[in-house]
Write a protein that binds this DNA or RNA. Structure first.
Lengths: 228, 228
DNA sequence: GTCTATAACTAGATAGAC
DNA sequence: GTCTATCTAGTTATAGAC
């Protein structure tokens, strides 16, 4: 089985970049960004060490590319989903649950979609908010500034009794709940949790997870104001 | 100003261990566990490189010691707080808010207490749930197994309409909200959030933060069941 | 575009004087 | 207990043949 005999005639070399991105995403998600030598990535991808520097300039360039590849379409999908629920609501504010669904569902579905080669995007996404460093800060700014602005405005309108900062903090809590889930849902049940939850309840299908998260966050967001 | 002239007569050397722990905690919290060379720690502590291996055996030993120093008293305080609210409730279940307060307040107060030299424990605590690796897994098991069991049981009793796994997931969401807050509250407001929240609202006193978190989590936990 | 070989550097750990 | 000097291994990045 030759490797370039599938569908591309002469130059199938673009596949190298994708193979590197896939391998890097998987390893970054499992082990964090700083515990993955480039050699492990190229070995996993079946390409040469020098290929990373050739295609991405540096390990930093690769990291940026890995996040960009997922975050750009993901956040477009979230904003498109918000467009839809806002259009459906006409002049009124959409339901809080619908807004939260637009925020949460695309992430969970992407994270759990093995077709995309992104089973492990769960860990990557969670890592985005937990690993330090200026590098990720810039990536976050590029991808999240507009998104956060739009969803903050939508939620503020949906719960007009809350102040701007209260909506901000509750969005922040929601995001923490979401990404803490992502970080752990790909891993096996830790043994020290086995007294509290069954293994069968630890890994859910994506729609159940979305339902749980939306119900929790909606109730939390609707809680009475604590700054009267 | 000689360094051993404060209160100890002849052998003041125990201070070295503490200085290393303080420096390591600070740097680990700021930059994560894997981005901190031992040389940076010893420089920050004003001691020699070899001191870490002498006192802790290895960098791994130091990491374990750093977490143990905070997690042991912290989780004892949380369980003691739970003891108190359970005793006050007598035969009845305590309020959900009181249970959540016992879970959340000791963390936030420790994280924000500069007296302990632990301003940066915020980041350390959040990192505990986000950095991968078997090392932290063992630390977590040691410190969290009993705690999670007790609080899970208390919450299950406080909201008897929910199933065990539903309580587990909502505890998980609550923990995500808590630790995502810890991870960010020590940092300056990222510029890409400045359109959404004022700097003055981004850093709260600990009691305001506890109040916000408890209100959010209590409402989320009380949401109607999603698995009927 | 891909590879081998290696440069240039940094990491954690240790030996042995003091 | 503390220090200097050093060892060994592992890292990113690059030079240059193919």
């Amino acid at each position: 089985m030759t490797s370039q005999s599938e569908s591309c005639g002469e130059r199938c070399h673009a596949a190298t970049k994708e193979k590197i991105l896939d391998a890097a995403e998987k390893l970054f998600a499992m082990r964090g960004l700083n515990n993955v030598p480039m050699r492990d990535i190229t070995q996993e991808a079946g390409v040469n060490v020098a290929a990373i520097n050739y295609h991405f300039g540096s390990k930093d360039g690769l990291i940026t590319a890995v996040f960009d590849r997922r975050l750009a379409p993901l956040n477009q999908a979230r904003m498109a989903a918000l467009d839809i629920v806002e259009a459906a609501a006409g002049k009124n504010s959409p339901n809080l649950e619908d807004i939260l669904g637009a925020f949460i569902r695309p992430v969970v579905e992407l994270a759990m979609n093995p077709k995309l080669g992104a089973i492990t995007f769960t860990g990557l996404m969670g890592r985005c908010f937990s690993e330090p460093g200026e590098r990720l800060n810039q990536i976050m700014q590029k991808h999240f500034e507009k998104l956060v602005g739009r969803f903050h405005a939508a939620m503020l309108r949906a719960i007009p009794t809350l102040s701007r900062e209260e909506v901000f903090w509750r969005m922040h809590f929601t995001n923490g709940a979401l990404h803490n889930s992502l970080l752990t849902m790909e891993k096996p049940l830790p043994e020290w949790l086995s007294n509290v939850v069954d293994a069968k309840d630890y890994h859910l299908d994506s729609e159940s997870q979305v339902r749980r998260l939306v119900a929790f966050a909606a109730a939390g967001l609707r809680a009475p104001s604590t700054t009267p």
